[in-house]
Design a protein around this nucleic acid. Structure first.
Lengths: 206, 206
DNA sequence: TATATCCGGAACTCGACAGTACCGTATAGA
DNA sequence: TCTATACGGTACTGTCGAGTTCCGGATATA
């Protein structure tokens, strides 16, 4: 019968594509994106950084926008493990425990990538969705759990808007880094927790 | 003697440059910048929008970066009048009074301009300074006065960090608009005031 | 072993844009 | 009135980068 090759997606011949290189190329894309921004980034830069040929890139992604979209979408990897979130017993303790060098470094790179694609976001709903999913949502998810636990244990009133609380931290960080160009250090982050987030959550200042 | 024409900056001859067109050209630049972003913007677009010749632009600004820098720097015009700030007697009243359609419209355009140049800011200290001065500082200045008055009248403790308080509102707005792509409406702004800014300022929830 | 596809790399095409030059016209000072 | 410059507009130049094509070599199927 040979009834359509729906079940045989690749009865191909010859050397097979080495998909172990995909992550390396996407990482290179993110690096260049973070360093030069979307328009400053060239395919040659990415290929050189990944030690790959330009043709190799075009065999896998049909265009520059597709490559960037995929790179951003595949970024959700090195993320906070939602199963192993700190559980110190207090909201403040949990929030501070989330400030760890690896998390900060990860967030810094994400911010630079975000800066590089902000102007595209307004013009590409797909990229906007990918950025949302990969850059914004993971952090919000971690915060959400921590706040939810605080509500459950009665530490903060359940009248609070958890979705709003989740965005305060990221918003302050993004604004300081991208708009003000000031460093995001531990002192700043703790100040945010103590003077903005916890008051907004309804925690009495100690 | 003819001792240097230091005192004669323009003993020129012929038709004079029509400087009344400068603001129109800079406005056109900001419009295109807001719509397409820095890299998407072309000098031809700006010239067409301003109904000017490209040569006219290059007679006044030596390059695209110079033009954009000047346009951003000259943006502080349609700003909140610091002399005529609302004075309702309460911090909440003052903050809400600052939410007016003209202010919102102004802020939206500034946000789009900001989005268009964010990726350049990291690479151009001059542009970063101009954006800081024209887009960030005016709003912070208005907030600063309002908070200062609240401290002076004893409505909020003078232990608060006014500089930090000033950035909360802009940060939440920028994050919502640029990162989340959600609308910045009156409801959102009032929610920010009541659930984030006032608690951070140490105002007891009514 | 033959063939088809992969690889990194280099050379190429093609379109877009920054910046320049020039047109005919308008306007200021000598 | 003459001259030098500005104006809006168009055409040109030079560069740069996206995307394509081809190379010699590697590798998997038949």
């Amino acid at each position: 019968m040979e009834q359509a090759d729906l079940a045989e997606p690749k009865p191909r011949l010859g050397r097979k594509r080495d998909h172990t290189r995909d992550p390396e190329i996407l990482e290179a894309t993110l690096d260049v994106l973070a360093e030069t921004g979307y328009d400053g980034m060239t395919i040659d830069m990415v290929a050189a950084r990944a030690k790959a040929g330009k043709a190799t890139l075009y065999r896998r992604w049909s265009s520059k926008p597709e490559l960037v979209l995929d790179a951003v979408a595949c970024m959700k990897s090195s993320e906070i493990d939602l199963e192993a979130l700190p559980d110190t017993g207090t909201l403040r303790g949990d929030l501070i425990a989330l400030i760890k060098p690896p998390n900060i470094r990860d967030a810094e790179r994400k911010l630079r990538v975000m800066a590089g694609i902000v102007s595209m976001i307004a013009r590409s709903p797909e990229l906007a969705a990918a950025a949302q999913e990969a850059l914004v949502e993971p952090r919000a998810a971690a915060n959400r759990i921590v706040f939810r636990r605080a509500v459950d244990r009665g530490e903060i009133p359940d009248s609070v808007d958890i979705e709003q609380l989740c965005t305060i931290g990221p918003a302050l960080v993004a604004y300081r880094a991208l708009m003000l160009g000031k460093p995001v250090n531990r002192e700043f982050l703790i100040g945010n927790i103590d003077h903005v987030i916890l008051p907004a959550a309804g925690v009495r200042p100690a």
